[in-house]
Design a protein around this nucleic acid. Structure first.
Lengths: 340, 340
DNA sequence: ATGAAAGCGCTAACAG
DNA sequence: CTGTTAGCGCTTTCAT
């Protein structure tokens, strides 16, 4: 293994000079730097991370905390793999590495995170979920460990950095989009009424409807295991002559499309759907879903960026970073204003 | 930060004794070990990984190499997230950590892997794909870096450890399962005719059919973008009075179910389907798929295990590890022998 | 602008 | 069975 000493010898300088040249220290003359860099190349020098870590206390590695996923349910959402890739890509560029923490229980996650940090395996964390009173975040807060959260702010609004989409705006945009195409009776459907994402999107829906002077409805809860909900759902659609659905996620959307077809409703002919997330589920079956792309790769890249800033300067301001979304127009919305 | 020295002082022994106690060295008396362990607990000692790494040359970290995925296509297969979780779970138990390498190009992947290894960030790798003349594996081979491959052996059959299912047997099992339920006209459908997985399953299908004395068919290639294939497919089904399909993956299965329904075929009433992988796609829509569970968590656990063995003892024999599969019986197969 | 030297926290011969 | 003693490869004062 070629070390800093070999380079130093070859370049005819002191090891410490090599170290400084490596870090592009301003107190090394350009001439010496060049000589050192040449020597490095000639010898094929690669810095030993362990040694750097030990001496500097930095690992150049970040931990990514996945939500406590039970079963293949949430785990299989393409989102996680996509964002992991995005984060890793950006990390590679910045000479960082990413390690992951996964478990099905929060407490186990917490101990993984604790260990990773106390063993000095990582410099900070990106948390891929946000939950109230989350022990992982509480731990990170308590020890002032650098971290950013991808998701909506819940607990420490001003004391942590959040990276998220503007879910309210997204829902409002959906309402306007549908209305521009002649839809007035718009129902918001979800399979979860607790998450921040749901809340934000639902508020956006309400505001959007209100602003247009349209009658809005309570969100419909769809759960295949609760027949009474299903009946109520279909009943609402018929009674209110609902012409469009806003559905909180792509998987739910395709389930609902199948459900509706069972009752004789065809998408988009009889009823239109705007969905969210633009996951790979959006285009496995026809009609392909018109759905909001939440720009996962930006979410990933930006969050890593903020984290690195925080790691390098603990005084970095916390902030809420908003990532823009786009609407992918596909086949699930019918334009009622166009005669055909 | 509490170090080994603090522990040593508190326990009244030499730092090296503490180090040995930590490793449960056989040359330390139980009594001393106990004393040291107590001191560790009292002080809340956590070993500093960087220091261990530097001194021992081991990182207690493994790299997981994801296939060069372009777009959300393969990336979103639940498989990758599942196996990552499995590997990470087993790693945690063994006090290892996992880092990932992802990229959309093979050459980029290779440079990530090279860097990870040369920087001494990891002790070895698990490669989540197998491909002929893969530069990543070639690099790993060349430098005798410990690694295992999850997938079918292709290039260095005897020089590397593979962890995989018995795909031939799986396909044969599918044939028998269908035949036991009265099916004779069984067609194998795929969207890819190049992968090892395809090859193995197809051979298994052929062998299985032959053994039962049934007429077998060439595999049908299904590609929504090639209408001529689609027509040929439906034509085959009608002409040959196909009663059951074996479909290479769950996503393809649900696409085909939708396609068939367009032509008036209902699953399982008109035609049965046995699928492979038991991914989360298998149960998003009805009919839920009867599909082979490839036991991802075992794949993950076993591969990590072998890798650790290899890391700790470079003389470890290479072997092919076969992970058992199970058939998840659900709704997509009709029993023709049962009258109803 | 560069060199000398003292560690970072731990491991691993080598003694005894 | 336990202590002594060198480092592992790099960073970082402190001199010069």
């Amino acid at each position: 293994m070629v070390t800093i000493k070999d380079v130093a010898k070859k370049a005819g300088v002191n090891p410490s000079t090599v170290s400084r040249a490596l870090k592009n220290s301003s107190s090394i003359s350009q001439k010496t730097k060049d000589r050192v860099k040449r020597a490095m190349n000639d010898l094929g020098y690669v810095p030993n991370l362990a040694a750097q870590m030990l001496a500097s206390g930095l690992t150049y590695c970040v931990g990514v905390v996945l939500p406590p996923l039970s079963g293949p349910d949430r785990l299989s959402e393409p989102f996680f793999m996509e964002i992991l890739t995005a984060i890793n890509g950006e990390a590679t560029i910045n000479n960082f590495t990413v390690s992951i923490a996964t478990s099905d229980t929060l407490s186990d996650l917490e101990s993984q995170v604790q260990l990773m940090y106390r063993q000095k395996r990582v410099d900070g964390f990106i948390v891929l979920y946000s939950e109230e009173k989350d022990p992982v975040c509480q731990f990170l807060m308590k020890y002032k460990i650098p971290f950013v959260i991808i998701g909506a702010p819940v607990d420490y609004e001003n004391e942590t950095t959040y990276v998220d989409n503007d879910n309210q705006l997204m829902a409002k945009t959906a309402v306007n989009y549908l209305n521009q195409r002649g839809h007035q009776k718009i129902l918001f459907v979800t399979n979860d009424q607790k998450s921040e994402i749901y809340l934000e999107r639902y508020i956006g829906y309400q505001k959007g409807m209100m602003k247009l002077g349209l009658k809005s409805y309570n969100s419909a809860l769809f759960d295949s295991k609760r027949p009474e909900l299903l009946e109520a759902f279909i009943e609402t659609i018929q009674r209110e002559k609902i012409s469009a659905l806003m559905i909180i996620g792509d998987v739910l959307s395709i389930k609902i499309i199948q459900f509706l077809s069972y009752y004789g409703f065809t998408v988009p002919d009889d009823i239109s759907i705007v969905s969210f997330n633009n996951s790979s589920y959006a285009t496995i079956l026809h009609p392909y879903l018109t759905t909001f792309d939440i720009n996962v790769s930006s979410l990933g890249r930006l969050s890593l960026h903020r984290l690195i800033e925080k790691i390098k300067d603990s005084q970095t301001q916390n902030e809420k970073v908003i990532v823009p979304f786009t609407l992918e127009e596909r086949e699930s919305v019918r334009n009622l204003k166009k005669r055909n």
